[in-house]
Simulated scan of single mutants.
Amino acid sequence: MAEPLSAAVFVAALRAEGVKVVEHDGWRTHNRNAKGPWGPVHGTMFHHTVTRGTANTVRLCREGYASLPGPLCHGVIAKDGQVHLVGWGRANHAGLGDPDVLRAVIAETILPADDQATADGNRHFMGFECENLGDNKDPWPAEQVEAIVRVAAAICRAHGWSARSVIRHLDWQPGKIDPRGPGLNWTDIKSRIEDRLGVKETPTPVVPKPARPKVDLSQLVAAARSNPKAKGQPVTYPGVRLVEAALVDEGLLAKTYSDGHFGTSTLTAYARWQKRCGYTGRDADGIPGMTTLRKLGAKHGFDVKE
Rank of each mutant, 00 (worst) to 15 (best):
A245V: 08
V83T: 11
V221A: 06
A284K: 00
I167V: 15
L60P: 00
D80W: 03
A254H: 12
W273F: 13
P174I: 05
A245P: 00
G75S: 01
L102F: 08
I106L: 10
A147L: 06
L60A: 07
H93G: 13
M45Q: 07
V101W: 03
H261F: 03
G301C: 07
P71L: 00
A158D: 04
L184D: 06
H84N: 13
K295D: 09
G75L: 02
A246S: 07
A163Y: 00
E63P: 04
R180I: 04
V243G: 02
V11Q: 11
P69E: 13
N31T: 12
K209M: 03
D178M: 15
S162G: 12
P238F: 03
H84R: 07
D195T: 14
S162P: 02
G95W: 07
L85T: 03
T236H: 13
G181D: 05
E143W: 00
S218G: 05
G297M: 08
L252T: 08
L184G: 10
A230E: 10
E306I: 11
S162C: 04
K295G: 11
E146K: 00
D178Q: 15
V41K: 01
G263P: 10
A224W: 01
E129M: 14
T256E: 14
P205G: 05
D216C: 07
K137N: 14
L5P: 05
I193H: 01
R180S: 09
A298R: 07
G89A: 09
A117C: 03
K190N: 08
G301E: 05
L252E: 07
V248R: 01
V76F: 03
F262Y: 15
A13Q: 03
Q233V: 10
K190P: 00
Y257L: 03
E131Q: 13
A147W: 04
A34E: 14
L220D: 07
L242T: 02
T49C: 05
A224D: 03
F46L: 14
K229D: 14
K299L: 15
P112A: 00
R59H: 13
S218V: 14
W172E: 09
A16M: 04
G121E: 01
V166S: 04
P37K: 12
S191K: 15
A66K: 09
L184I: 10
I77Q: 01
L85M: 12
E3K: 09
P99F: 01
V9S: 15
I287V: 15
E244F: 09
R168M: 14
A254G: 13
Y257N: 12
L242Q: 04
F128K: 06
D283F: 10
P288A: 03
S226R: 11
R282S: 15
E250C: 12
K214V: 04
S226H: 11
A117M: 01
D135S: 02
L242S: 05
Q82I: 03
A211K: 13
Q116H: 10
K214H: 13
G181S: 02
F262D: 06
G134V: 05
V206H: 13
V22R: 10
S165D: 03
D25S: 11
A222Q: 09
F46H: 13
K295E: 12
D188K: 15
A245I: 09
E108S: 11
F302W: 00
K137I: 12
F262S: 07
D135V: 01
L102I: 01
D171W: 01
R164K: 09
K35H: 11
A222P: 00
N185I: 10
D303S: 13
Q274L: 04
F128T: 07
T264M: 15
V101Q: 05
D283T: 00
